[in-house]
Amino acid sequence: MSDAKATSFGAAADDYEAARPDYPFEAVAWMLAQLPDGARRIADVGAGTGKLTRVLAQAPDAQVVAIDPDPVMLAKLRETVPGVSTFTGTAEELPLSDASLDAVVLGQAWHWVDPVGASAEIGRVMRPGGTLGLIWNTRDSRTGWVRRLTAIMHASVAEVLLDTTGPAVAAPFGRLEAKEWEWVRPMTRTQLHRMADSRSHLITASVPDRRRIHDDMDALFDELGLTWEQTIELPYVTRAFRAVRG
């Protein structure tokens, strides 16, 4: 992972766990659908608090390991997904042996890595025919108030990538396949504020900038008539990608 924003999330681990959405099971299943029978050893890289890890752990006979550069995030993951082995590392430097995995997945993380170096390193630890899966939950900014919310919070590195060139992988992986799922998540004003606080832009922002962003969010919510007790349906798009190791 490349910069201070990429490694800032431990400072907001509780907000990240409380306010970030889980991944749709069907999207995760699609990423791994091409695995050969009996292939069950999977690494969640950039695992954070375990949002993706817990979905992987539901698969029958899955042997899941979680890897993240931030020990604070891994400590939260061990609370939320007990029993999963955790390791400190990055996509470019994995603490795993050669050809030891059937699949590697990254949730909300590939935009932080060097795609060439990460592809080579993930290829090293994966058996031929294994799957690399990339997945993001993003707010659907085709809805007017969501587009205004994103402008207030600032578009993330991931959102810019997905709305422009899209992710890229390199050797030894082949062409990326892609699929999307649309869904909604009811959220309170408090949850929306915590979601903002879990984003790298706010984590690394100055106190005055953070205050201004939250004030602007409240002005939007007031305009929408969203009280602290009510929920509003926040539309999401889950974008998943998969590639096979040659």
Rank of each mutant, 00 (worst) to 15 (best):
residue 112 W to G: 03
residue 185 R to N: 07
residue 186 P to N: 15
residue 132 L to P: 00
residue 76 K to S: 13
residue 171 A to T: 03
residue 141 S to R: 03
residue 129 G to M: 07
residue 76 K to F: 02
residue 179 K to D: 05
residue 122 I to H: 14
residue 104 V to N: 05
residue 145 W to L: 10
residue 111 H to G: 06
residue 160 V to D: 10
residue 143 T to K: 05
residue 80 T to E: 06
residue 156 S to A: 10
residue 110 W to N: 09
residue 76 K to W: 06
residue 122 I to W: 15
residue 117 G to W: 03
residue 157 V to P: 02
residue 90 T to M: 08
residue 92 E to W: 07
residue 100 S to I: 04
residue 143 T to L: 09
residue 117 G to M: 03
residue 82 P to K: 00
residue 161 L to M: 15
residue 134 L to G: 05
residue 80 T to I: 01
residue 85 S to Q: 09
residue 169 V to S: 00
residue 167 P to E: 02
residue 125 V to I: 05
residue 99 A to E: 04
residue 132 L to Q: 09
residue 169 V to E: 00
residue 132 L to F: 15
residue 175 R to P: 02
residue 101 L to W: 08
residue 176 L to P: 05
residue 118 A to T: 08
residue 116 V to R: 13
residue 138 T to R: 10
residue 74 L to C: 08
residue 74 L to H: 12
residue 157 V to K: 12
residue 144 G to N: 08
residue 172 P to M: 11
residue 106 L to I: 02
residue 122 I to L: 13
residue 110 W to M: 07
residue 82 P to T: 00
residue 142 R to K: 06
residue 181 W to E: 04
residue 142 R to I: 06
residue 151 A to M: 04
residue 177 E to Y: 12
residue 94 L to H: 07
residue 77 L to F: 07
residue 147 R to N: 12
residue 94 L to I: 01
residue 173 F to M: 10
residue 74 L to G: 13
residue 102 D to W: 00
residue 162 L to G: 11
residue 133 G to N: 04
residue 126 M to K: 13
residue 111 H to D: 02
residue 139 R to M: 15
residue 81 V to S: 12
residue 177 E to L: 09
residue 138 T to D: 12
residue 174 G to M: 02
residue 146 V to E: 02
residue 178 A to I: 03
residue 180 E to C: 11
residue 135 I to V: 14
residue 79 E to F: 06
residue 75 A to T: 11
residue 169 V to F: 01
residue 98 D to E: 09
residue 186 P to L: 15
residue 183 W to N: 09
residue 105 V to N: 04
residue 81 V to H: 10
residue 107 G to W: 14
residue 129 G to R: 10
residue 150 T to D: 15
residue 165 T to L: 10
residue 164 T to P: 00
residue 115 P to Q: 04
residue 98 D to C: 05
residue 80 T to V: 05
residue 105 V to K: 03
residue 141 S to H: 05
residue 98 D to F: 08
residue 109 A to E: 05
residue 80 T to S: 13
residue 153 M to T: 02
residue 97 S to Y: 11
residue 136 W to E: 09
residue 90 T to S: 14
residue 119 S to Q: 08
residue 154 H to E: 13
residue 155 A to Q: 09
residue 73 M to I: 02
residue 78 R to T: 12
residue 126 M to N: 08
residue 182 E to F: 12
residue 139 R to Y: 09
residue 154 H to Y: 13
residue 119 S to V: 01
residue 92 E to L: 07
